[in-house]
Design a protein around this nucleic acid. Structure first.
Lengths: 337, 337
DNA sequence: CTGTTAGCGCATTCAT
DNA sequence: ATGAATGCGCTAACAG
């Protein structure tokens, strides 16, 4: 904003009408006569008048901004969700203010504080790993108590009551595991870098359920990734001493890493070991061999989140609901058959 | 914003002080006495008072928002830049409002219009492919004329005078090509999906310059990608009838695609064909073989962009300058030696 | 040390 | 059909 900016007041002086007449003329209020409207509109056009959005926001007690907090924009899934959010928000006339928590509790708290001072009309959030580990959710609850509409997606805190949009992690994981088992894998491994999150937990449960239900499983092994280098050593060590013929990973990157480690040992994917990952991203599509993945439909998820949030902003009446999105298994060459 | 929100006015009534006294007390103005400050601060704490940022912004004629327009968040480079932008902006107390142009001129125009109504104090932009093709830059110039500070990065329009941050595309490309030539590649191909952009043009020029300077080049071939499927056919067709022993791609994804096409034909990377890409992202790091790439240091670029923009917001005096960022070639296994 | 007043730019109610 | 007055929530110059 600078002194070049045209305002209603200046326009009023220039046109010899009052501020309120100018305001009404520009919003096509029927109280104002045609000729007056025309004069004023022409003048506004000439001087490139643009209504000051901040003043409007103050007057109307809203911002037309949506806050978005995601753990990691470099993960394809979150990037895709963001694309969906941006598209729908833009369509509905909302800006999005993006904060990246970088999986850190502290950054998440700070971001929320920065957003909850009236900067946004609502918030879409996926919880950071750090917060799950810390198990401290006060920062989320406090903004809800303050009356800010919140939508949680993907990584959600069950105890915090808001609208939620998740995928059916348990079922997706169960189905993916079953796919491995059906292609006669008997020695399975579950690889996860998000062990502490809601999502990670459910995916592991789905994996275990499928294994328990199957009759001919010989072994199963859990690899929790904190550090990829340590994981590489552990995983390859295990491969050399034990048998694995099927891997399910709870995200995309760890699936690709596992596959590369397998290939690095001279083993074949999928002939020796089948691999399935979560999130259908650029990595999965372009790996060699291309990776069979659980498609989480991130973009639609983002779209839905905005729709639900805008709904909630406009009418705060409905029951809070959890939407479970379908996934689909995209079969590529990292699995047999 | 809702009626639950505490305001200075309500706080004034509750405390029996005037609004201005309350305001001053809460900003630790030395005019106010210790006991009064304490009383008021305690009350503010008790009622969970948070200053309304919109009102503050209106008063101070600024938004503490930075607009960011990028062509495609799914490209690792832009995601990385965004990470840098978010980090530095957050550090400096700015929000970022992210718009994705999706390489479209129309969306870029619309985004700029949505941002330039006082929603942001400044803008960081990388131009869309569509805009380069259309060669219509009025929407950019108009916001600059209106006095909004703008930083262009990576894909920049030379004719539009703003601060710019770019990488040395020509030199990076020249060096990468030279690396191929030095490892005795004689039949080179340049693969590019961004042929129309400033960046794409300069990278091609660097490639050509290196070829012209070399003495023993036997052939060189340009592949412009509009559609990846068509490219796949063309490229593999060429591979089958002609010789290529070195590929430089102007971005990450096309490099990976080229490599996969090569491997798909039973050829070996790097033994038969060396491949180098631009942008050091997740794809390059995790491909098989891992890809030699030009690292563009996206995060630092984002950081710098914010620093420069904030500088420009605070003092509109300096000369406009173009910062050229260094790149580095990360050698991995897709090239010989 | 505290309060009164004004004003940021806009929309709107209430006169005229 | 037009204008005056009010208020959104905040800061700050000025008065006392």
């Amino acid at each position: 904003m600078n002194n070049r900016m045209m305002t209603l007041k200046k326009l009023a002086e220039l046109s010899n009408f009052s501020v309120s007449t100018v305001s009404k003329a520009l919003t096509d209020n029927p109280e104002i006569s045609k000729p007056t409207k025309n004069k004023i509109k022409k003048l506004a056009e000439l001087y490139n008048y643009i209504p000051n959005i901040t003043a409007k926001n103050l007057k109307e007690q809203k911002t037309r901004n949506i806050g978005v907090i995601i753990p990691n924009i470099l993960a394809h899934f979150f990037a895709k969700v963001l694309v969906g959010i941006e598209k729908e928000a833009s369509k509905q006339g909302y800006h999005i203010i993006t904060c990246i928590s970088d999986e850190s509790y502290d950054k998440e708290v700070k971001s929320i504080e920065m957003l909850a001072n009236g900067s946004v009309d609502g918030l879409i959030i996926s919880i950071s790993k750090g917060t799950f580990i810390k198990k401290n959710y006060k920062h989320i609850q406090s903004i809800i108590d303050r009356g800010l509409p919140v939508i949680q997606f993907d990584r959600v805190i069950d105890e915090i009551i808001t609208d939620k949009i998740v995928i059916d992690d348990f079922k997706s994981s169960y189905n993916a595991t079953t796919t491995l088992i059906d292609s006669s894998c008997k020695n399975l491994a579950f690889v996860t870098p998000i062990h502490n999150t809601s999502v990670g937990t459910r995916r592991l449960q789905g994996f275990q359920k499928a294994i328990n239900k199957a009759s001919n499983i010989e072994s199963s092994k859990l690899f929790v990734i904190d550090d990829y280098k340590i994981f590489a050593k552990d995983f390859q060590g295990y491969l050399q001493s034990d048998t694995i013929d099927g891997v399910l990973a709870s995200d995309e990157l760890s699936a690709i890493c596992a596959m590369n480690l397998i290939i690095g040992l001279g083993l074949k994917v999928p002939e020796d070991i089948s691999v399935i990952g979560f999130t259908d991203g650029i990595l999965s599509e372009n790996s060699n061999p291309p990776l069979t993945t659980v498609n989480q439909h991130g973009q639609e998820l983002g779209l839905l989140a905005v729709k639900q949030l805008v709904n909630r902003i406009n009418q705060n009446s409905e029951e809070y609901k959890t939407t479970i999105m379908n996934t689909s298994l995209i079969k590529r060459k990292s699995t047999c058959k």
